[in-house]
Design a protein around this nucleic acid. Structure first.
Length: 709
DNA sequence: TCTAATAGACATC
DNA sequence: TGGGGGATGTCTATTAGA
């Protein structure tokens, strides 16, 4: 619909790029004179046909659907209903108006093109030249010279280079940014010791007391602060002064760069300011919300929110409506923000899309013993380990693990499991993450992420520092090694902002909190150990494990037993396949096999129970399938078991087919093949959806499994 | 009916 | 030539279990 509207214009030439909505053409400071149509066309030309583009189109279609649904709901509202909702909305507006606080003065400081400015400071030859901080895949910041070409943050480097061929790319260097950020924060602290750092380059200051003590207006303080920042860092910043944080932030953007804007603490002034303010300028209203509000309700400015308050009240949730109406009134938070503790911690990596299952598992976590000599790539990435490191640095343990996946077609999925006990070790994270990932296979992925939430004791958890979270993300994307990350994070922990947080929260990173990490839950019961029992239901196997010292050996033993048993499974084949059809976990059957039998057979030497030696599966060098070459580490017990089962079923089918082929007609042979394929794909694929029902929590799954036996 | 868990979407820097 | 980030929080819808 919108496509049709925009695909032709005055001269009737098709302009398909006009319907490709990207953030890249949005107004941003320094982009006022940009030829938007040119930028849009180049971005479109470079994007079309790509998987990313296709996904964007899908998202666009979904958004249109949302708009249509909402329009339909609007149309269904009767006059009586509308009047009812208008009454409710009017009442709510009065309630919100009563909360308006004009007694405080907030200052929002935003450093101008911070990373780019710091880079120019340390390399003056960049001055006056278009420059971007980042790389070919993504840029973090562009200086104002580059912005004139349409280059901006969050734009892929290769598109930026197309827009501005002379663009200079500078890699991110967070040590520098943290150093300069610390300098700015030292200035901020002089005006508000409890300032709120929103990121490395942004902060909110309550300057009410500073203004009162010195008998000056907010604008004067802003001017003085900006001068101090420049004198002490050589960097410019912009500032906004207003009665609350929401307005102060909007104000700081008005005279960017190196400027400021003061909104008086006066209701009329606020309402006038708000009346023509585009909704997109408000923090919290992004591309999608703007689109919906504009296309469904014709809301373009903040004032329009009040005009359409009845409809908003009718169609949005209470919290969304409250937010929209507050925006319409220019009301924001003006009290000291409560210190929020961190709610989750995560780590994710983007890589070249692959459906190589071994590779995907490898991205998730490394094997718990040294295989470097076997396969150097196994240490290329290790998300579980990185997450574990980050958690340990902050003394966190949590009981919900979420696996995030981005498919080759840019579709984002998440799969979560909530455990009965808290985890923080990389082994535990890897164990559950592997289960979650396994259930998604086969799949081609370009990103894997892990997040831990539901922390052990949120009261004692570290407060979230937006500066740090940003830092983590960019350091990793900026080709900086984990070692650097570690150092920098440590350094940041000691910087001004964090002292500031520490002052406020009295965080306790005591040994106790670390002791809570791992497999022990607050009650003192060790559910994780229980779970291990469920995982490995053979008492005999447990004996072997309990007598064993290290985890590595435990895992390896488990795996070997699985491998060994595999070679003895031929007589049980019918039972195994039936069991699987019934939904029973195959691994349990296998692991219940007698270790004494297993111990007689070595995977590499077994030749006793196969009719055909060449069809036998064993793990070359302990990790590579002898039949198809797929690589799976020994601690991937279940995966290896399933893999073995697959080959076993395949072989049986082959043998059966070869017998039948002597008597079957060609068509019947095809049917047989279909049968195998469908069976095989059914066993591999399990992709639960909200509609289909919930994931069984993993620990519950194993408890149930155990009960079955 | 309330609550917790899950999944996806959206937003920010 | 191909190449489109990472960390975190909030909200909403849906579902299942207590």
């Amino acid at each position: 619909m919108e496509k049709n509207e925009t695909s032709s214009s005055v001269d009737d030439k098709p302009r398909p790029w006009q319907s490709y909505h990207t953030v890249y053409t949005n107004a941003k400071a320094g982009m006022e004179g940009v030829d938007k149509e040119k930028v849009q066309r180049i971005v479109y030309e470079m994007s079309k046909g790509s998987k990313y583009f296709e996904n964007e189109e899908k998202k666009e279609a979904l958004m249109r659907e949302k708009v249509e649904n909402m329009r339909a709901r609007c149309a269904k509202l009767s006059a009586a209903e509308l009047s009812h909702y208008q009454t409710l909305a009017d009442r709510r507006i009065l309630e919100l108006e009563a909360t308006r606080d004009l007694s405080r003065t907030w200052l929002h400081v935003d450093m101008d093109a911070f990373y780019a400015a710091v880079e120019t400071l340390s390399n003056p030859s960049l001055k006056g030249k278009p420059m971007a901080v980042g790389g070919m895949s993504m840029i973090s910041t562009a200086n104002y010279e580059a912005r004139r070409f349409g280059v901006r943050a969050a734009m892929p480097g290769f598109i930026a280079r197309k827009l501005c061929p002379e663009l200079i790319f500078v890699p991110t260097d967070f040590k520098k940014y943290i150093y300069y950020s610390d300098l700015t924060r030292k200035v901020f602290q002089r005006y508000d010791p409890n300032f709120v750092a929103a990121s490395l380059d942004e902060a909110y200051l309550d300057i009410t007391e500073a203004c009162r003590e010195r008998g000056v207006a907010g604008g004067e303080i802003a001017e003085e602060l900006r001068t101090s920042v420049y004198e002490e860092t050589g960097l410019t910043c912009s500032a906004g002064v207003g009665p609350n944080r929401l307005l102060a932030k909007v104000c700081s953007d008005i005279n960017k760069p190196n400027g400021q804007f003061v909104l008086p603490n006066d209701r009329m002034a606020v309402m006038t300011f708000i009346s023509s303010l585009p909704i997109r300028k408000i923090g919290g209203i992004g591309k999608v919300t703007e689109h919906i509000l504009r296309d469904v309700f014709e809301i373009k400015t903040c004032e329009d929110m009040l005009q359409k308050s009845g409809l908003l009240y009718a169609l949005f949730s209470r919290s969304s409506t409250d937010f929209f109406l507050s925006v319409g009134l220019g009301i924001g938070k003006s009290d000291a923000p409560e210190v929020r503790s961190r709610k989750s911690i995560s780590s994710e990596r983007t890589f070249s899309a692959t459906d190589d299952e071994a590779l995907l598992f490898q991205k998730l976590g490394k094997w718990p013993f040294d295989l470097q000599s076997c396969h150097s790539n196994y240490f290329a990435a290790d998300i579980a380990e990185m997450l574990c490191n980050d958690m340990q640095k902050e003394g966190l343990s949590g009981r919900t693990l979420t696996l995030k996946l981005k498919t080759a077609s840019f579709e984002v999925r998440s799969r979560a499991v909530t455990l009965q006990n808290y985890i923080c070790s990389s082994e535990d994270i890897l164990k559950y993450a592997t289960k979650l990932l396994k259930a998604e296979l086969p799949v081609s992925l370009r990103l894997i992420g892990l997040r831990v939430s539901h922390f052990n004791d949120t009261k004692d958890a570290a407060p979230s520092d937006p500066g740090q979270k940003t830092l983590n993300g960019f350091i990793v994307s900026g080709d900086v090694s984990r070692k650097v990350l570690s150092n920098q994070t440590t350094s940041l922990n000691l910087d001004v902002s964090d002292q500031h947080f520490v002052d406020k929260v009295e965080i306790n990173f005591s040994v106790d909190s670390r002791e809570d990490c791992g497999t022990r839950d607050p009650s003192g019961d060790n559910h994780m150990e229980d779970l291990d029992e469920h995982l490995c239901t053979s008492d005999n196997i447990m004996e072997v494990e309990n007598n064993d010292g290290t985890l590595c050996n435990k895992v390896a033993d488990k795996a070997n037993i699985g491998d060994m048993v595999q070679h003895n499974r031929e007589p049980q084949q019918t039972e195994i396949l039936q069991s699987e059809e019934a939904g029973s976990p195959l691994q349990v059957q296998v692991e219940r096999s007698s270790p004494s039998t297993a111990s007689k057979v070595h995977p590499d030497t077994d030749a006793t129970c196969s009719s055909k030696q060449e069809d036998q599966l064993f793990w070359v060098d302990g990790y590579k399938c002898s039949l198809c070459g797929i690589e799976m580490p020994p601690n991937f017990v279940d995966e290896r078991q399933e893999h073995s089962d697959f080959h076993l079923a395949e072989r049986l089918q082959k043998e059966e087919s070869s017998v039948r082929s002597r008597t079957l007609m060609p068509r019947q042979r095809v049917d047989q093949k279909d049968l195998i394929t469908s069976h095989s794909s059914r066993r591999k694929k399990h992709k639960p959806s909200p509609k289909e029902g919930k994931h069984i929590p993993i620990d519950m799954f194993f408890v149930k499994s155990n009960q079955n036996f």
